[in-house]
Amino acid sequence: MANSRSMAINDKLGQTERRDSWWIEPLLSGLGLGLFGIYATWAAFQGTNFEWGPYLSPFYSPHINAPWFPLSPAFLILPFPLLFRATCYYYRKAYYRAYFMSPPGCAVGPAQKGGTYTGETKFPFILQNLHRYFFYFAAIFILILTYDALLAFNFDGRFGIGVGTLIMVANVIFLGLYTFSCHSWRHIVGGKEDCFSCDKMSKLKHGAWSRVSIINENHMRWAWISLFTVGFTDLYIRLVASGVINDLRIL
């Protein structure tokens, strides 16, 4: 066999013969993730205005009373969803492209030089393999946030609906779609099976796997929508709690 050396190993960062605007996608996703990161960090440092009436910000849920902890309780909560998203198979693509430029676009020169690339074989990126465990935690948070969304109908013992209620319900729906469209979950519920008709259990698993597969196709969409809704839910409750806006009661 002839020498198989690639002609692109010396391509510099961003070098490409492509003429389309390949850089828009990594730019937008980099900006989106960056803006969310800045807002979430700021909101986590506040430690106030995260609840109003029956509403509780997802950044501060569940309620934790930890006087021993020097920072706001959000810092005890946010690592879990952060790790879930950081190891997510979609976000990996987004930030490897946007931040690590590995590569920034398809058929575009990457930041690393030839032999230095180790992908997900070395620390820290080898830890991406633990995504399923962060999924388990994220699933627990969906339960907690569902409970919060139900409480958001309870205005001093009376049933009611405010704009905040709708926002919290929408948020938990989108977070749920994002969480349960996870690739690891798709594997766990049935994808790991080789045979879907061999026994009763495997038929059940096929049903579960097919359903997860349907929402899994839009994992990226749920990732972005839920990232927006979770930030927006915190912002809305923050604005209401700090008196900047009034919550509109619908019922």
Binding site: Y89, R92, K93, Y96, R97, S102, P103, C106, A107, Y117, T118, G119, E120, T121, F125, I126, H183, N216, E217, H219
Partner: peptide, 22 residues
């Protein structure tokens, strides 16, 4: 397989529309 960092370019170029990555 650990070298793959799932940046999905394979899926983007596949003329048979195989969802290679997912």
């Amino acid at each position: 397989i650990g070298y793959c960092n799932i940046t999905k370019c394979c899926t983007e170029v596949c003329p048979e529309d195989i969802h290679i990555t997912d």
